[in-house]
Simulated scan of single mutants.
Amino acid sequence: MKKITGIVAVLFMLSVPVAIHAQDSTSTVKKTGKAIKKGAKKVGNKTAEVASKGKAAVTDSKHKDKVGPDGETIYIDNHSKYYWIDDKGRRHYVTEAQLKDKPKDD
């Protein structure tokens, strides 16, 4: 009987570190959750950008001779306003004075 009690006690002591380690795995879950959230946000932004640029290409016209302040494609809406689309799919309206000449391709 003493041997069985001793064996059970040893097995119990060996199982305690496993339980402690299992409680520490929440940091792994948090890291994985943050990585998934970051990836989902990146995919959502890219989807919004592609959708906005696709809609603009169909409904609005592109300016042939001018680009935006940082070389972006300029679109002209039906109210003759100039805008470009950022990497999150948002429109940024610009004035004619902010437009730059399109660089010549050699």
Score class of each variant (00 low, 15 high):
53 K>S: 04
38 K>E: 09
53 K>R: 15
31 K>A: 15
37 K>Q: 07
52 S>V: 01
56 A>K: 05
44 G>R: 11
38 K>M: 10
55 K>E: 14
31 K>S: 13
45 N>I: 00
42 K>V: 02
52 S>P: 00
56 A>M: 08
51 A>S: 04
27 S>K: 12
27 S>D: 08
51 A>W: 01
36 I>V: 15
49 E>T: 01
33 G>K: 02
51 A>F: 02
43 V>L: 06
43 V>Y: 12
55 K>D: 13
57 A>Y: 14
38 K>Y: 08
36 I>D: 06
32 T>S: 10
28 T>K: 05
37 K>E: 02
37 K>P: 00
40 A>H: 08
45 N>K: 12
44 G>V: 04
36 I>K: 14
57 A>G: 15
26 T>V: 15
46 K>H: 13
33 G>I: 02
31 K>M: 13
35 A>E: 05
54 G>E: 09
39 G>K: 08
54 G>P: 03
28 T>R: 05
52 S>H: 03
54 G>C: 13
32 T>P: 00
51 A>L: 07
37 K>Y: 04
54 G>L: 11
41 K>G: 10
49 E>W: 00
54 G>Q: 10
42 K>Y: 04
48 A>I: 03
41 K>L: 09
52 S>Q: 11
42 K>C: 00
46 K>T: 10
53 K>T: 03
42 K>Q: 11
41 K>Q: 13
43 V>P: 02
38 K>D: 06
40 A>I: 04
30 K>R: 13
28 T>A: 03
51 A>Q: 02
28 T>E: 14
43 V>A: 11
50 V>G: 01
38 K>H: 09
54 G>D: 07
44 G>H: 11
28 T>I: 10
43 V>M: 09
56 A>L: 11
33 G>A: 05
53 K>V: 02
49 E>N: 00
28 T>S: 06
30 K>E: 08
45 N>P: 01
53 K>E: 08
30 K>G: 01
46 K>F: 07
38 K>G: 05
56 A>F: 10
32 T>L: 08
32 T>N: 15
27 S>N: 14
36 I>Y: 15
50 V>A: 04
43 V>S: 09
40 A>Q: 12
35 A>G: 02
44 G>P: 03
36 I>P: 03
35 A>Q: 13
32 T>I: 09
34 K>T: 05
53 K>N: 09
40 A>D: 03
41 K>D: 08
51 A>E: 01
48 A>M: 10
41 K>F: 01
31 K>R: 13
35 A>C: 03
37 K>F: 02
50 V>I: 15
54 G>W: 11
33 G>T: 06
30 K>V: 08
31 K>G: 11
52 S>M: 08
33 G>C: 03
38 K>S: 14
42 K>I: 02
39 G>W: 08
